[in-house]
């Protein structure tokens, strides 16, 4: 897995990250268990790349994104940003880290303060970090709004006056304001219609090239993730089950779950109805995940040892890592 290599070559390095939420019950609200939302993921982001994190609801991809940005405190594991350990940063150090890591959220209706003017929303990060003088602030925000494709008078309007796609542009402008190095986009287009979705995806791609951003793109829609990403990580029940180049994942999926996931996506082509792998059952509860491989109860290729031994992420091809006993 992760050799002891120079960590500064990657912008972000995550090592064996875990995030458990306590489950409380009983009269004294004692801790009676853990929801293992993220159960051991390791990944690294190169400068300027887009890493797509894909998985179904409840697989822990959002928790992973928020733990990496240090909105949540990790239960175990290490996070390195530009070679520096940020796992346990606190106070002013954590505050200054936030300049470099920004986030775009899923719901453009809930992530903008309805009582604030768009101008104030976008300038707030600049004000908070004392960037820009009062006179230059407005120009700078206007410039940003223009860059993300909003009209100039947007500055004096309120979020409710905008459509979903435009609100997402406001959220993107806010994330860009501090010129961060890493943006974590958590399902940025899943609330949007297809015709608007493509506008926002194109914008994110343009901005990434222009501002030299590294992007952690989290989504459930594999077609969108593949379009956006250089590399993709597939998550299942808190575990990263496969990591590879976007093309490689699509053309040569190794993990049975990835294979099923790709085959389950209906293709917009009536002449190409490929054979589907239909998984039985539902995703098990992360509070009580199966012993051994988390996927084995639904896996069409499960072997007896899958219920005993938990597979580790191992390289099978160049830059292609799978966590499955079939390839062990």
């Amino acid at each position: 897995m992760t050799q002891q290599k120079d960590r500064s070559e990657h912008l972000l390095q995550v090592e064996e990250l875990k995030k458990y939420y306590p489950v409380r019950g009983g009269f004294f609200r004692k801790k009676i268990g853990d929801v293992k939302a993220v159960d051991n993921i390791s990944l690294e982001l190169k400068k300027g790349e887009t890493f797509g994190l894909v998985g179904e609801s409840g697989c822990g991809k959002s928790t992973a994104g928020r733990t990496i940005t240090r909105l949540f405190k990790p239960t175990e594991g290490k996070i390195f940003f530009e070679g520096k350990d940020i796992t346990n940063l606190r106070g002013s150090e954590l505050r200054s880290l936030r300049q470099d890591i920004q986030m775009v959220f899923q719901d453009p209706y809930a992530s903008l303060n309805p009582k604030m003017m768009v101008g104030s929303i976008v300038s707030e990060p600049l004000v908070n970090y004392g960037k820009g003088s009062e006179s230059s602030l407005k120009d700078e925000v206007m410039e940003l709004l223009k860059r993300v494709g909003l009209p100039e008078d947007a500055y004096f309007k309120y979020p409710h006056e905008f459509s979903g796609g435009q609100r997402q542009r406001i959220g993107i402008a806010r994330a860009l304001a501090l010129k961060p190095k890493l943006i974590v986009a958590d399902e940025p287009v899943s609330a949007l219609d297809v015709s608007v979705q493509s506008q926002v995806l194109n914008l994110l791609k343009e901005l990434q090239a222009e501002f030299d951003l590294t992007l952690l793109f989290i989504a459930h829609d594999l077609s969108v993730v593949k379009h956006m990403s250089d590399r993709i990580g597939v998550m299942y029940l808190g575990n990263l089950v496969e990591v590879a180049d976007a093309d490689e994942i699509y053309k040569n999926p190794k993990h049975p779950y990835t294979q099923a996931l790709i085959s389950a996506i209906p293709q917009p082509d009536p002449r190409n109805k490929s054979e589907r792998i239909i998984l039985s059952g539902d995703v098990p509860s992360p509070q009580n995940p199966p012993v051994g491989c988390p996927f084995h109860p639904r896996c069409p290729e499960a072997m007896p040892e899958c219920s005993e031994k938990k597979p580790q992420l191992k390289e099978v091809n160049k830059e292609h890592r799978v966590s499955c006993l079939l390839y062990d």
Partner: peptide, 13 residues
């Protein structure tokens, strides 16, 4: 305007 798995497109319509 929809991204597709089976196609490589830089920019979506």
């Amino acid at each position: 305007s929809i991204p597709r798995m089976d196609e490589e497109r830089e920019v979506l319509n």
